[in-house]
Design a protein around this nucleic acid. Structure first.
Lengths: 170, 170
DNA sequence: TCCATAAAGTTCTTTTTTAGAACTGTCAAC
DNA sequence: GTTGACAGTTCTAAAAAAGAACTTTATGGA
């Protein structure tokens, strides 16, 4: 599969994975939510190679997740800040962190705690149904094709599979 | 950064990324939640190379996300099913899908719709605070170190950065 | 003037991963 | 006794990442 075709798949997961589905992008976004903004800050905090960092930042800007804005002239320097589209990634980041808290912890306890400014309490994120407010589980959800589904084919068949079908039917 | 040290970082995001932070793992897990279980099913649905699929399945089993169980003898055949640890990834998958629905859609509408069996309605996932039940936003959350945080260092400084520090202080 | 430092990259070479295709082993069915 | 399914493994070529040095544009001293 070519990764540049992934974002065209009729699958919202595949399309999102095209944007943030690699290790560095997720770590970069984590830093963004921790108020990191500048190239060298990302580089020294993450230990990512400068080449890859430049590449990933470019990609995130291209997809509208980050915006590159100048913070000084002569020499021109830029920083990277989350757009609204980027801020909307928060539930993804939080659910990833929460799963790690529950399933990948060591004996020392959680690396970080999250406090809700609204209620002043340390909290966990909970995913609920927008309609009834009940917590969601995989077993309580039924999935069916929507208007953007591909006609009569697997949910996100690959380029390779489409080629296979073309051969079989041709 | 070596990826095999990622899971030891004092950061729940990094630890989770060590397990599911690559494109194929996320796509494989999506298939798992759509009831795909067998090697060739994964392979033909996703178009992943057999080599990588074997590798990723092995990794997910090693981390306890999937369990490899025989479904027939002679010849022995196995299928891969989600453990509870794997099922707990559901909020991550759902929030990824939802972000794609909102931000990566095309004119045709959503590829898939989700119906909550409990209330019988098509829904969106919403992330709320476990303590007060209000929807969460990045700006309303304050992050501070927990008991498992690294002492006086960046949240998830890399092996490279630790080496740098060692050089500076040595 | 010359040197050092800083930020934000780019360039280069080596190493690791991935793609793509074919091959293996074990059985069942025809 | 040949075909086909399943669950992989092996091979080579291509792509991506690691690791380190270099570039550019400017500031701040000695």
């Amino acid at each position: 599969m070519k990764w540049d075709t992934l974002e065209e798949e009729p699958c919202s997961l595949a399309r999102t994975v095209a944007v943030i589905g690699d290790r560095w992008s997720l770590l970069i976004l984590r830093e963004c939510f921790l108020r990191i903004r500048r190239f060298d800050e990302f580089q020294s905090t993450l230990g990512i190679t400068r080449h890859l960092l430049a590449d990933r930042l470019k990609k995130l800007v291209r997809f509208g997740v980050l915006r590159r804005i100048p913070y000084q002239e002569s020499p021109k320097r830029y920083e990277y800040i989350l757009t609204q589209k980027g801020l909307d990634l928060y539930p993804i980041i939080m659910s990833i962190v929460h799963w790690g808290d529950i399933h990948m912890g060591d004996s020392r306890g959680r690396p970080m705690l999250h406090e809700h400014k609204t209620c002043k309490k340390v909290f966990d994120p909970v995913m609920v149904c927008s309609e009834c407010g009940e917590p969601l589980t995989a077993k309580a959800v039924h999935v069916h094709p929507g208007p953007g589904a591909r006609q009569s084919s697997p949910v996100h068949a690959s380029a390779q599979e489409r080629a296979n079908r073309a051969v079989k039917s041709g």
